[in-house]
Design a protein around this nucleic acid. Structure first.
Lengths: 199, 199
DNA sequence: GCCATCTTGGAATCGTGATTCCAAGATACT
DNA sequence: AGTATCTTGGAATCACGATTCCAAGATGGC
């Protein structure tokens, strides 16, 4: 009996993600969202609630569409170090070129804003960090099993280190860091973790 | 002949730094600054110009009072790795406890906000990164000279890595990362850079 | 074709954003 | 003391913030 939505909420959320991701939540107005999505204020509020709820939904969407797939690839296949190297390589490519160049990571960005005061946001941040660590840890454990790790390397500690390194890459890429330089740095880090080249 | 200022601009700037540092520029209003400093809008604008100029002044002040002293200590004395370890130790202490706990680094925070669109801000960000790298590089070169580095460690690459790691520490500390965990991670990183314990 | 129910357009609300303006007050030199 | 020159208080400005409201429109089942 009721009317049906005249737009696609899913598509809308993707547009909203792009806005919050690029410009941050504090500097993105509801008017900007209305303009970018083309839909009406009423529809926005009726579908998603207020701005904060919309931001949270966008954050979830970002993680689901952008972060999770990368984490999954990183952890799957027991490839070990090559998977880690590929992860960072894709990361740097996305951060420094193409449509999303210089946007950084939406979750990393959220750390710096006042939005991290919201307990819900904070929870997402922590969960994200945990998942990143876990994925890296899985890959590094596989690397250890395959004998790819240097003698003194602990997979746990190395995962923590690489997770923090990823935040650094994300942040600096937003300021326009050079992709080549980032790649060199990551390579050096992975080299120090991995078995020295001996054959 | 003229009147003289009825307040101390220097002291005021310190208060402003605290505001922008903790809450970010987008979410800090001029009204908040007026309230926190106790001085009048007219005096604010007459002394510092608008909000953006005030933010830039605060950013400079932060670097001068907070970052530079740490960089200087890191680079001076040719102590090598111990200086690096001490640097990270102080960093984590400041970021996770005391008055500034969970505030992160004002410069790192600036990477994530929309304020990085301003060319002047961007320039400060790049200069900051350069100085951090340089300080680390100086310390690591001293470490190399003193034979503290592992065989495959390049001071340049290690400096880049540790610089990015510092951003990671700063970001995560804002989300309430555990100091002990951060310390363990940093220690592991320094261990992998340094000469293995052999006597 | 009708009705209950939802969606949509767009104005209205009401707070707060940064910035400006001017009269009143304070200062230091003459 | 007088005066030129700056500072200060506080109201005024004007754009834009998020959110709400209601009349008009669209839908699907009867």
């Amino acid at each position: 009996m009721p009317d049906i939505k005249h737009f696609d909420p899913d598509e809308t959320l993707d547009t909203v993600v792009r806005l919050f991701w690029r410009r941050g939540v504090a500097t993105t107005g509801v008017q900007d969202i209305v303009t970018a999505t083309g839909l009406n204020r009423s529809s926005l509020y009726a579908t998603f609630g207020g701005k904060q709820e919309l931001y949270l939904a966008a954050l979830h969407r970002y993680r689901e569409r952008r972060s999770r797939p990368m984490f999954r690839r990183l952890a799957e296949g027991d490839r070990g170090l090559p998977a880690v190297a590929e992860f960072f390589d894709s990361l740097i490519t996305v951060r420094c070129s193409g449509e999303y160049a210089r946007w950084g990571c939406m979750v990393a960005n959220a750390h710096a804003g006042a939005e991290n005061g919201d307990p819900d946001v904070r929870a997402v941040l922590d969960r994200h960090h945990q998942e990143l660590r876990d994925a890296l840890h899985t890959a590094l454990t596989a690397a250890e099993t395959r004998g790819q790790l240097a003698a003194g390397t602990d997979p746990e500690a190395a995962a923590d280190l690489l997770a923090l390194l990823a935040y650094g890459v994300n942040l600096r890429s937003r300021a326009g860091a050079d992709a080549q330089a980032l790649r060199r740095t990551v390579t050096a880090a992975l080299d120090s973790i991995g078995r020295s080249p001996l054959a």
